[in-house]
Computed example of a mutant assay.
Amino acid sequence: MIETGPVSNKDNTTGTEVAGRVADVLLLFATGPKYLGVSAIGRELGVSKAVVYRILQSLVSREMLATDPGVAGYRLGPAAVALGASALRGFDLRVAAAPVLRRLRDETGETTTLSGLLGDERVYLEQFESEREIKMTVELGKRFPLHAGSSGKVILANLPADRREALLAAPHDALTERTIVAEDELRAELERVAEDGVAVSLGERQAGAGSVAAPVFGPDGEVRGAISICGPEYRFTPDLVERYRELVRAAAGEIARTPAATR
């Protein structure tokens, strides 16, 4: 257990609460800006600066967080990066998808990605970058909402009905001018995606980017993530989009049948 020093009765902090706060602090670095300061963390979590400071110092001492000369705030440290890398290496779906995504990259000349479902969001777990000079790349480990982009939409479309409905009822931010945010329009889009088994995005999550994605299911029939072909939008012509539909659909099925993905 990470120690954070003595806590006053005013804070009324139990061991379980402290552990939860430590986890909340680390999650802020996974979803927020690269650098965070004591005041920003305190405001976000509703915790006193004194408590936040003790947590940060404890995490720094274990290299879960670090500071840089001349930069205000804290960032993820080498121990956190190593922990994340270890988790990715042990993720069976990632192991199963790697050779398929590599082959798909070579076949299309575009970047291929694997996303995993994480709570009510998705996170990029793997990518094989295009060898072209102009290409699209993604940030591994960064969370994205499910309503924007082909990978998010194809995961959302295949969630259990009650969970999908709860997410549809929540407000949706427009990441670009093409992001579908109206509930009725998004619902209609997801129905098309569920029927087709493939989602297409042209500038919905990132302006100027095109992508085609298919869901990957586990042995229990639940959606576990998505694979995509992505690149500059101008290269995603109607003919190539149709070709990529078939390619990602077949590739996703191949990954789901791989023993490493079913453990």
Results as ranks from 00 to 15, higher is better:
Ala23Thr: 15
Ala23Tyr: 14
Ala23Ile: 14
Asp24Pro: 12
Asp24Trp: 14
Asp24Arg: 15
Leu26Ile: 13
Leu26Arg: 09
Leu28Asn: 14
Phe29Glu: 05
Phe29Val: 09
Phe29Met: 10
Phe29Pro: 01
Ala30Met: 06
Thr31Trp: 02
Pro33Leu: 06
Lys34Cys: 00
Lys34Ser: 01
Lys34Tyr: 03
Gly37Arg: 14
Gly37Met: 12
Ile41Val: 14
Ile41Arg: 11
Ile41Gln: 12
Arg43Pro: 02
Glu44Gly: 05
Glu44Val: 05
Leu45Pro: 00
Leu45Gln: 07
Gly46Met: 09
Gly46Val: 09
Gly46Ile: 10
Ser48Ala: 11
Ala50Arg: 15
Ala50Asp: 15
Ala50Phe: 12
Ala50Glu: 15
Val52Arg: 01
Tyr53Arg: 14
Arg54Thr: 14
Arg54Met: 12
Ile55Gln: 06
Leu56Arg: 05
Leu56Gly: 04
Gln57Lys: 12
Ser58Ala: 14
Ser58Arg: 06
Leu59Lys: 01
Leu59Phe: 06
Leu59Asn: 01
Leu59Ile: 09
Val60Lys: 12
Val60Asn: 07
Val60Phe: 07
Ser61Asn: 08
Arg62His: 06
Arg62Tyr: 05
Glu63Tyr: 04
Leu65Tyr: 01
Leu65Asp: 02
Ala66Asn: 09
Thr67Gln: 15
Thr67Asn: 08
Asp68Ile: 09
Asp68Leu: 10
Pro69Gln: 11
Pro69Cys: 10
Pro69Trp: 10
Gly70Asn: 07
Gly70Arg: 06
Gly70Lys: 07
Val71Trp: 11
Ala72Gln: 13
Gly73Leu: 12
Tyr74Pro: 09
Tyr74Gly: 13
Tyr74His: 15
Tyr74Cys: 14
Arg75Asn: 08
Leu76His: 03
Gly77Leu: 04
Gly77Asp: 09
Gly77Arg: 04
Ala79Tyr: 05
Ala79Asn: 08
Ala79Asp: 08
Ala80Arg: 10
Ala80Trp: 11
Val81Cys: 10
Val81Asp: 11
Val81Lys: 15
Ala82Leu: 15
Ala82Glu: 15
Leu83Lys: 03
Gly84Arg: 15
Ser86Tyr: 14
Ser86Arg: 13
Ala87Phe: 12
Ala87Cys: 09
Ala87Asp: 09
Ala87Gly: 05
Leu88Asn: 07
Arg89Asp: 10
Arg89Leu: 11
Arg89Thr: 12
Gly90Ala: 11
Gly90Met: 11
Phe91Ala: 05
Phe91Met: 08
Asp92His: 05
Arg94Asn: 03
Val95Trp: 03
Val95Gln: 08
Val95Tyr: 02
Ala96Arg: 02
Ala96Val: 01
Ala96Glu: 02
Ala96Phe: 02
Ala97Leu: 04
Ala98Met: 03
Ala98Val: 03
Pro99Lys: 04
Val100His: 00
Leu101Met: 02
Leu101Gln: 01
Leu101Asn: 01
Leu101His: 01
Arg102Leu: 10
Arg102Lys: 09
Arg103Gly: 11
Arg103Gln: 08
Arg103Phe: 02
Leu104Gln: 02
Leu104Ser: 03
Arg105Asn: 05
Asp106Gln: 08
Asp106Cys: 08
Asp106Tyr: 06
Gly109Met: 00
Gly109His: 00
Gly109Ile: 00
Glu110Gln: 03
Glu110Cys: 00
Thr112His: 00
Thr112Lys: 00
Thr113Asp: 03
Thr113Ile: 01
Thr113Leu: 02
Leu114Val: 00
Leu114Trp: 01
